[in-house]
Structure formats: structure tokens, C-alpha cells
Design a protein around this nucleic acid. Structure first.
Lengths: 222, 222
DNA sequence: CCCAACTTGCTATACAGCAAGCAAGTCCTC
DNA sequence: GAGGACTTGCTTGCTGTATAGCAAGTTGGG
């Protein structure tokens, strides 16, 4: 994950910029892999090539380091969402092309940034209390929602429609990444097989396009 | 979650049946809530109304207790999948009605069994190594896959189609449950609001039906 | 020589697992 | 049928290990 978030690195925080960055990188990787509880500051220090005390020295406490990781991460995500929206606005394509492009780009983004997905999954399971204290994540979500609503000119009488669609796109893209070791294995799918990711992307795009632009209204079963 | 899995409770395992059941119930709840690492045998004992040593006495080790929880859980799930499949087979409805019924039932099932969802999510994040040792989970997945393939008479030339569809159904249903404290909050959705779950179910059914029965073939964007 | 950037020593806490203890039966023998 | 031997079901004490955080120490550049 690239790095945009100057306030976390310079300012008059303790430690040098290079060390703080190395610690953040190591912490992001380890927190994403093992979660907050199972990651020790000792391990973070070792992975960053510094002593076990340095992460605490640079970031105050383990919880503060974790929050800093989330902040940097969502600062990047927010920037990605914004730039994606601007590109979509400028493209002048038809609604279905734009939607397919959004899904495709999002799919590629999370495939390339597994740390991001895993960090949020850990947050989801542990209550999301740290994420709550990181404003950019709400801004990113709201902007994604607005982009979807605008671009597709969704019916303003149903404000929940865009939200459901966004939830669906995210869920469809995330699921195979998150559950590669559980569901996919149980189903006999190898997520590393050549073509799997592309087939998945295609499936998601087809599903979302047909569901959104067709708009059938099926009755619930009794 | 109901209880089918006699071998875990009687046999010549240590402890009385009632105590083992109480410990399993408490452990399922706590492991689902906090995960394996963050749950202590002390807490399990207290929650079960026994001493801190009893969980270890009855199940051997913390890891063994955890495995027993997963086994009981998937024994139940496997039974639910089987009975659902039999009901679908016997219904004689059209493919779209059957699919809508499957999705609706599955949605209701996971809404009523959050422990199941959370236990698997924890497994997914921690590598799924314990789940790997619990055969019923593969059997349940395979049977669900076979049911979907049969019922919808999916093209046997594309064996991955049923798997992608199953992944999509599961992902669409799970996502709002798992991310009620992260995404939903960021999007300003209250998952406890009256009607949210029904609206979600409707959205998922519409999406899956239109995507499956229409079968458009949209090109990927360049 | 001094200050920032680290490192190392220390303490308190938490937890899993083992082993010993204990109380309430159950069986076995006379 | 009584009394001791033994089992079952559970509890409590103990030990080793891991970790967060603080405080004192160290080193290198300006």
C-alpha cells in the first residue's frame, strides 16, 4: 500500500521518519496477518529491523501504533476512491460501462491490497472500535456511495438502493479473498489457479450489471 | 444452535454430559465473540458455571475444546443443508422459485445463527487450520454445491458456475452481518433498523435471480 | 557536551497446562 | 449390610512463558 499521510511521519513525533515508516510497514503487515492481539511489539520491532522497544518509543502504545496503521491505510483508500470517482466522472461512458469499470477497478484494488481487506475484517470481528476513531474510513465510504448514486443516476426515491448495491459489490469482491482458506478449499477451488481471479471478476460484473440495469421485481417466496 | 453430535457428549469422555454441554455452549459463544486467542479457559468455565479447570478437564486442551465446538457446529450445519436440499427436491417448483427459496432460507439461517458465521470468519482470518480437521464442513459445502447445480440444472460444461454462484450467495448474505460495525456504520446504515434485513434479503434475491436466469454476457472493460 | 534516537533491564499481569486435592458416590468383600 | 477400596467429577495450587509499558542506560551527530 502506497503512503500518503504526512502527519503520521513528520511533525514532532518521536523517532526518525525512516524508522517510523519501517515500523508502520511492519506493523501493517503483522496486524493484517495475525490481528491486534496476536501481534507483539517485539515482533513488530524485529520485522522492522529495530529493537523491541522502538515501536513503543515511536508510537506511544500498541493501540496507538495500530490506530496509526489504520489511519495511513484509510488515507490511501480515500485517495484511491476520490481519484477513481474523478476518472469515472470524466470518462463520459454509459452507465453500464461505468459500473463495470468501477467493479473491475475495485476488484483489482483489493486483490492488490490484501492488508487493507484483512485489517477491516479483523476490525469487523473485534467490534470496529478502533476504526470508529479513524474518520477517513467514513469519508471514503460516503464518497463511494455518492459516486455510485451519481454515476448510475439511481432513483432518489430509494436512497437505500445505492447502499445495497455497494454492499453487494464489496461483499462479492471480498468473499473469495477472505475465505480462500475456508470456503474455497471446502468447495475444491484453488484461488491461486490461473484464471480464477479473472473468472470471479467476470462473474461479479455480470451479476451486478444484470441485477442493476435490468431491475426485475421478483416476489419473495412465502 | 441446536445440538446434534452425540459422540461429543457421551462416550467415555471425562465429565458429565450436562457439564460438557454447558462448557461447549459457553465456549461456542465466547469463541464466536472474541476468537480463540482472546478467550481464556477461565472465562469459559465461569460462563458455563463451573470452575476454571473444568473446560480443560472435560476436553483436554483449549485447542481440543475449540475443535469440539467447530465439530458440533458443522454437524448442525450439515444437517440443515441436507434437510434444505431434500425439501427443495420435493417441492417440484420452478428453478427461479427454488433458487429464491434457497437464498431466503439461507439468509434466515445465518441471521439466526451468528455464532456460526463468526466462528468461520475467525477461522478464515487465522488460516482455517482447525476447520481443516473438521470433515463435516467440506461435506456441507459439497452438498450445497451439488444441490445448487442439480436444482438449477446448470450447464455441466461450466462446472465453476455453480461454485461462483454459491460464493456469491454466501458473500451477499454474510457481508452485512459481518460488517455491521464497520461498513454499515460507515455507510450510515443501522442493521437493527426495522426492515433492513428484509430489504437486504429482497435485494440479494433480486440480484441472484436476475444474474442467474438472465445470463447476460457482458464484456470486460478494457 | 548535549540532545535526539534508540536499546536494554525490570516489573506486573495473564494464561495454559499439569498435578495434587477433595467430596460424593459405587462396588466388592466379608 | 457394613465398611473399606476405588472411581468419577470437579477444584485449586503451582510453574513456566509471553507480553506491555516504563525507566534507566547508551550512542552518535551537531
Amino acid at each position: 500500500m502506497a503512503s500518503v499521510a504526512p502527519h503520521l511521519l513528520d511533525a514532532d513525533q518521536p523517532g526518525s521518519r525512516a524508522t517510523r515508516e519501517a515500523v508502520l510497514d511492519a506493523a501493517e503487515r503483522l496486524f493484517a496477518e495475525r490481528g491486534f492481539e496476536a501481534t507483539s511489539l517485539h515482533d513488530v520491532g524485529t520485522a522492522a529491523g529495530v529493537s523491541r522497544g522502538t515501536p513503543g518509543y515511536c508510537f506511544g502504545s500498541k493501540a496507538d501504533l495500530y490506530r496509526a496503521v489504520l489511519e495511513r491505510c484509510f488515507s490511501d483508500v480515500r485517495a484511491a476512491v476520490r481519484s477513481g470517482r474523478e476518472r469515472a466522472l470524466a470518462s463520459g461512458e454509459s452507465a453500464d460501462k461505468v459500473l463495470a469499470g468501477i467493479v473491475s477497478e475495485y476488484f483489482d484494488f483489493i486483490t492488490a491490497n490484501p492488508n487493507f481487506v484483512r485489517l477491516i475484517e479483523w476490525e469487523a470481528l473485534t467490534g470496529g472500535h478502533t476504526l470508529e476513531a479513524v474518520p477517513p474510513h467514513v469519508e471514503a465510504a460516503q464518497e463511494a456511495l455518492a459516486a455510485l448514486s451519481d454515476e448510475l443516476a439511481l432513483d432518489p426515491d430509494h436512497p437505500g438502493e445505492a447502499a445495497h448495491l455497494l454492499l453487494s459489490v464489496i461483499g462479492l469482491c471480498w468473499f473469495p479473498l477472505v475465505h480462500s482458506q475456508t470456503m474455497l478449499r471446502a468447495l475444491g477451488i484453488d484461488p491461486a489457479a490461473p484464471g480464477f481471479l479473472q473468472a470471479r471478476k467476470r462473474h461479479v460484473i455480470d451479476l451486478v450489471l444484470s441485477g442493476t440495469l435490468g431491475r426485475p421485481h421478483t416476489r419473495l417466496p412465502s
